[in-house]
Write a protein that binds this DNA or RNA. Structure first.
Lengths: 238, 238
DNA sequence: AACGCTACCAAGCAAGCGCTTGGTTTTCAA
DNA sequence: TTGAAAACCAAGCGCTTGCTTGGTAGCGTT
């Protein structure tokens, strides 16, 4: 279950990165990431039928919601009939569960790489925030928002399957937070939950294509708000 | 549309309040609030059939979700048959829309009273946070969470109906925030959205009946985190 | 007493749902 | 070339859904 996956971030991903440590990864590094996950058996080949179905499901569940998406929709998206789906998945809920698992694995790996590429502790946290925002708004991890929105659609037993993978993701956050806010702070889990909640909720109001507030700007604003700034930078009215 | 409702908070609600300005209201003040809203025609009489249906729908939508709740469920909850519902509402979506409107009106009025009862600007903001948390976790405003969770289930035209009422609610937040953080801060709308997002997300992890972290404690933690504290209270490692 | 109105019941319709079944095509290794 | 497994189609089953229809009981007004 808790397979010990040693991800090869040693020299593969930090080659093409220049000075912008908190920047988004290139398309090449993304493909490299997918190849790595594919080789380690963590995700399904997107070229296979099963992979096509999972990608289509992720997109449809994100757009229309789980219950509003029919198995006929998913099947039609890849050009097969609805009945044929059940040669790949045992049920509709199974599709949702598998989608969530692969999305979680991909998002975790992506964040791990982003943290690795950043140098300072502050930039690592910035990378996390930016990573999360990009995922939430569909710019990097298709289907990421269903992890929040469709959680209730999953039965308790299947929730447990995804929850195991989610632990690792949240651990990455905790480490990044503690490196900036200090390991002795006892409210780190609380801060992490509030921060992730604030980020998740941007899904309802922030539009990344807007010119007024770009995603990197939003990320920096969030960083400034959650991390106590040194008084030299902070304009105080006292 | 934007009816100017002059709520009589002059002397009705601040009589029974002692020193705990950020505390929850008593059952009496809640009933008074309902009576006021009922008299001003903002909500339906909970004793009427329509009111019973709206309350049942709010509870069921919150528990099971909109699509998972059938009109037969709602009808059975008040002891009538499913077909009879459509003498009170035009459609199932109409039920959701009306529920959201009344929930929004009630939550707005409740927050207005809480703000009024608090004295200092800091305590007014604390009251807002506590109000929101109590609403989110079903302790004060049944059906409040569907405003977030089931927003997508509403068509755009009906969303507009609820959105108009929501504006007022968010205005209350902005005023409370600006009174504490300063009116000159230009990121107030952003802070409000991040704060509301963080609070909304507590729905997924915080359990108000837990002994380890009570709701008032959580509210205070959130307040401390979002409002820059004076350096005397803030333990700095520098 | 007759009326009209509201609220409700009993029954069911049309549509859509997840999923099954039996049979056909495709794939690919031996 | 052959055989078997995997992948898929065509059809539809059983069920649930939101909603409709025709009729009726109750109630207050005139």
């Amino acid at each position: 279950m808790t397979a010990k996956v040693k991800f090869k971030t040693n020299g593969s991903f930090n080659t093409k990165v220049g000075k912008s440590n908190t920047g988004a990864e290139t398309a090449e590094t993304k493909n490299l990431l997918i190849a790595e996950l594919l080789a380690s058996g963590q995700i399904t080949d997107p070229a296979s039928r099963r992979g096509q179905l999972l990608n289509a499901a992720a997109r449809l569940f994100e757009q229309k919601g789980y219950t509003a998406t029919t198995v006929r929709d998913i099947a039609a998206a890849v050009g097969i009939l609805s009945g044929s789906i059940f040669h790949h998945f045992s049920s509709k809920e199974d599709i949702l569960c598998c989608t969530m698992q692969e999305v979680t694995r991909f998002a975790s790996a992506r964040m791990r790489v982003a943290i690795f590429q950043a140098s300072s502790a502050e930039d690592k946290l910035r990378a996390c925030i930016r990573c999360e925002l990009e995922a939430i708004h569909g710019l990097a991890v298709p289907g990421f928002s269903i992890l929040v929105n469709e959680w209730r659609s999953l039965s308790a037993s299947r929730q447990a399957l995804v929850l195991g993978l989610r632990d690792h993701y949240e651990q990455l956050w905790l480490e990044s937070l503690s490196a900036v806010l200090g390991t002795q702070r006892r409210d780190l889990p609380l801060v992490r939950r509030l921060l992730l909640g604030a980020l998740a909720h941007t899904h309802n109001w922030f539009k990344p294509e807007g010119k007024e507030l770009t995603l990197p700007q939003l990320a920096e604003q969030v960083f400034v708000l959650f991390v106590p700034q040194p008084p030299s930078r902070q304009p105080t009215s006292l």
